[in-house]
């Protein structure tokens, strides 16, 4: 039995001690430990900050919230409707359904932001329809996933496997591992300037979650490839996989250029973000076994090193992200 295949509801309901894919057991445990709830963060404190943002800052914040708000449950749909039904391993199912659960938390968190900041729900959700580039970012995923949902892809055929692999690539690597990381950067820049700090504390928690989801995706893709080495014989398919990562970087850069072109917002310039996106994309490529395409060796956004080190919070001042629920 390989990681993906046709399954019935009776299958894969027993956990075994010697998991065939111990990596998914680990990822399940890590995600379990990372679980948090939006109520832990007192974002009410940020309302005054939000009101004092400049129009460009507000626009950036709103569109980031709008993009996340309409993407979290999309990610969940892709997994729930497309990928989960073809998973054959109990731990892999647990790992991916934990991810699906976490998307609820994120969605809930952005919902609380909408309410607390008194944002216009419709216009926030409509952002991904009205902004052509945001729309394209989402369509990219939707198009691929439409091909595999409701049994349209047969996981027992090579073609079906490739389609499923593509949808996970778009969902967990490109959406969660590239597009989301672009927004992380400017959220963190806000906190770096002392603004909207409690919302950003929540985004820090989302980053932890997303880096685990990214690992879910990478492990699934590598496992599918290893179990089906014939995929590797289709050079044009492999080329397309690589190209889709490169193309999404271009798409994201178009979007960033529109938002940041010629100015700095929260101390960030387009040129920095461009290098940053390329740096992140190289990491994704290398993680999948490709050679880096952009050769940006150092993360240009140096303030992000604050995310890489131990964190100490002044409890009286900012919501802490360091307690564990498990």
């Amino acid at each position: 039995m390989s990681l993906i295949g046709k399954t019935s509801v009776r299958d894969n309901i027993r956990i075994t001690e010697d998991s065939k894919y111990p990596v998914f057991r680990d990822l399940y445990t890590k995600q379990k430990k990372a679980v948090w709830f939006p109520e832990e963060l007192n974002i009410q404190q940020d309302v005054l900050d939000y009101k004092s943002l400049s129009p460009t800052e507000k626009d950036l914040f709103d569109s980031a919230v709008g993009y996340f708000a309409s993407s979290e449950l999309l990610v969940q749909n892709v997994l729930g409707n497309g990928f989960f039904p073809v998973l054959t391993d109990p731990y892999a199912k647990m790992s991916f359904s934990t991810q699906m659960f976490m998307e609820n938390i994120h969605s809930d968190f952005f919902e609380i932001i909408l309410n607390s900041f008194d944002l216009d729900r419709k216009s926030i959700y409509d952002l991904t329809l009205e902004d052509d580039l945001l729309k394209e970012k989402q369509e990219l995923i939707v198009r691929a996933v439409d091909k595999i949902t409701y049994g349209k892809a047969d996981p027992d055929t090579l073609e079906g496997k490739k389609q499923i692999l593509t949808s996970i690539l778009l969902n967990n690597i490109i959406q969660e591992g590239l597009f989301f990381y672009s927004a992380f950067a400017y959220f963190f820049a806000m906190k770096d300037m002392g603004k909207i700090k409690n919302v950003v504390s929540g985004v820090e928690l989302i980053l932890i979650d997303e880096s685990l989801h990214l690992q879910n995706g990478i492990e699934a893709i590598l496992t599918i490839v290893e179990e089906n080495p014939e995929i590797l014989d289709d050079y044009s398919f492999i080329e397309r996989v690589k190209q889709s990562i490169v193309d999404s970087v271009d798409l994201e850069l178009d979007y960033l250029k529109r938002k940041f072109g010629g100015t700095t917002i929260f101390g960030l310039s387009y040129k920095e973000l461009e290098l940053y996106m390329k740096y992140i994309a190289d990491r994704r490529l290398v993680e999948l076994g490709f050679d880096p395409q952009f050769n940006v060796l150092e993360n240009p956004l140096k303030f992000l090193q604050k995310e890489d080190v131990k964190k100490l919070t002044n409890f009286f001042e900012v919501s802490s992200t360091e307690y564990t629920n498990f």
Binding site: I208, I238, K242, K302
Partner: peptide, 24 residues
Amino acid sequence: TVKGEKYTLAVNKRGERRGFGLSL
């Protein structure tokens, strides 16, 4: 113990796993 991706540090080596690199 559970932390986010280390952002500014070099990416983890994939070890034996070659992924799509094998195809190349």
